[in-house]
Write a protein that binds this DNA or RNA. Structure first.
Length: 479
RNA sequence: CGGGGCGUAGCGCAGCCUGGCUAGCGCGCUUGCCUUGGGAGCAAGAGGUCGGAGGUUCAAAUCCUCUCGCCCCGACCA
């Protein structure tokens, strides 16, 4: 492996981010602009995310299916707002089989259209509802500016597409899945997020309204980490999907869609990473514990390895993902650095000195603390330590977010905060006018991240124009 | 699409301005010895269409023209 230098996070955040990805061997740039190769270390994180989310989708009654990546161009055009939103970033296939195609095919930027084409055949009666489908897929969006994981031309995600009999049921589903995302972020990624509703300007093209979870990254910028859309009857009308209700009358179906992508890997890096690289929360780590044996002489080595075999024996049954790094060509110091770069949450060092004391050394990735632990009862100690790390990561991220959240009521101060702090969440009053939202964006590059669902009721005056405001919203610069 | 930067060994770079021995250096890689508690050491090796095409010249990594690609900053976005 090549020597890897990671820029200081505090000095060059952007450079630091790409360095961390290279250092942990998460992804490479691909020959095609904006595309990436997700390497085994990166894909392992995605697999853990899939596993956790997929289980939650199943628990909430969803089934997986798969729809094609090629969509007739005409499909996209059936929903006016949708086509307007996506047309500029759609890749189109015009030739295939050595011939020009009669109708060009688009490569899905999202699958609403082709899925609703199918739903038309699947749904006739209220008895067919709700229809709860999810798919794991790749999608392509030709973005102008790309960054590994955060915005790539092709990315992996899951997209849920559900159909319901009433607006209210669809709303319940939209909010339920937003909650699933929040739980996933908090419990698995150790990432505190804020649930909220998007403004008209920021909502999904084709949605009635959109919700998102918003997280704060290590530089104070916001990241939209998952979205859930209430599509109302927009796609049902575009694809003529009607059902007969219990009264025998036909009406259009109500829909939702929700998605979460490999962007979350970027969120993970930026939320928890430090100058030594990525820090993977224990609940998303395939390798949660790496064991580094230390020995000089062959006879020492034999004793150390014997102990390692003994104390790791219960790990598998206890559900601990672990790896023993017994390579002889690298020094312990070299290994410490390598596993830290890869973000393995916990390291166990064991050498002759430890054997004398019947102990091992636990070393936390998140704060590098070294804790001696006796070999007897090591398994529960490791499990407890992994929990501690998981919780510490969440607490630290939450504390950071709180520290960089401000209530701001004065527009001059508002501008000043964004310049001085470079980021952070500004909780300010907004009159709900598009004009004020746009002005903020032009003045500061900050956007309204969301109208928090849990905001306290507090009327006030718009931070921009002074008109009456029904409550505070979150302004921030975003990825 | 505008502004900036860069294409030379797997990775990071020097050489280019001022053309000239066999194109170098660090890391990594291979083999051997020796080592191992925070990126060890020694020795011997392997590895190159200098992004591509054309031109100038006795001679091009180096000068000229064209071209392809990537990265960073902005407008758009999960």
């Amino acid at each position: 492996m090549a020597e890897v230098k990671i820029a200081k996070r505090s000095e060059d955040y952007s450079r630091w981010y790409t360095d961390v990805i290279a250092a942990a061997e998460l992804a490479d740039y691909a020959p095609v602009k904006g595309c990436m190769v997700i390497r085994p270390n990166g894909y392992a994180i995605w697999e853990q995310m899939q596993r956790a989310l997929d289980a939650m989708f199943k628990e909430t009654g969803h089934q997986n299916a798969y729809f094609p990546m090629f969509i007739p161009e005409s499909f996209l055009q059936k929903e006016a707002e949708h086509v307007e939103g996506f047309a500029p970033e759609v890749a189109v296939v015009t030739h295939a089989g050595g011939q020009k195609l009669e109708e060009p095919l688009i490569i899905r930027p999202t699958s609403e259209t082709i899925i609703w084409h199918s739903y038309r055949n699947w749904i006739q009666s209220y008895r067919d509802l709700p229809l709860l489908i999810n798919q794991w897929a790749n999608v392509v969006r030709w973005e102008m500016r790309t960054r590994l994981f955060l915005r790539t031309t092709e990315f992996l995600w899951q997209e849920g597409h559900t159909a319901h009999a009433t607006f209210e049921e669809a709303e319940e589903e939209t909010v339920r899945m937003l909650g699933v995302y929040r739980r996933f972020a908090e419990e698995f990624m150790a990432l505190p997020v804020i649930e909220g509703r998007k403004t008209e300007r920021e909502k999904f093209a084709g949605a009635h309204h959109t919700y998102s979870i918003e997280a704060m990254m290590g530089d104070g910028k916001a990241l939209q980490a998952g979205t859930s859309h209430h599509l109302a009857q927009n796609f049902a009308k575009a694809f003529d999907v009607m059902f007969q209700n219990q009264q025998g009358t036909r009406e259009y179906v109500y829909a939702t869609s929700w998605g979460l992508s490999t962007r979350m890997i970027g969120a993970l890096i930026m939320a928890h990473g430090d100058d030594n690289g990525i820090v993977i929360p224990p609940r998303l780590a395939t390798i949660q514990v790496v064991v580094v044996p230390i020995a000089r002489k062959p006879e020492e080595r034999e004793k150390v390895m014997e102990a390692v075999g003994r104390f790791t024996a219960p790990f598998k049954a206890a559900g601990i993902g672990y790896k023993i790094d017994d390579r002889e060509q690298h020094s312990p110091g070299w290994k410490f650095n390598e596993w830290e770069r890869r973000g393995i949450p916990l390291r166990i060092e064991v050498g002759p000195k430890d054997l004398e004391k019947n102990q091992v050394m636990l070393v936390r990735r998140d704060n590098r603390e070294k804790i001696p632990v006796t070999q007897d009862g090591l398994t529960p100690a490791v499990i407890a330590m992994l929990d501690t790390i998981q919780k510490a990561l969440f607490d630290r991220a939450l504390e950071f977010r709180e520290k960089h959240s401000y209530r701001v009521d004065d527009y001059a101060k508002f501008n000043e905060m964004l310049d001085a702090e470079g980021g952070g969440f500004l909780w300010s009053h907004w009159c709900e006018s598009d004009a004020c939202e746009e002005r903020v964006k032009n003045d500061t590059k900050a956007t309204i991240r969301c109208i928090p669902m849990s905001r306290e009721s507090e009327t006030g005056q718009c931070v921009v124009c002074g008109q009456p405001s029904p409550g505070r919203v979150i302004f921030a610069r975003a990825y």
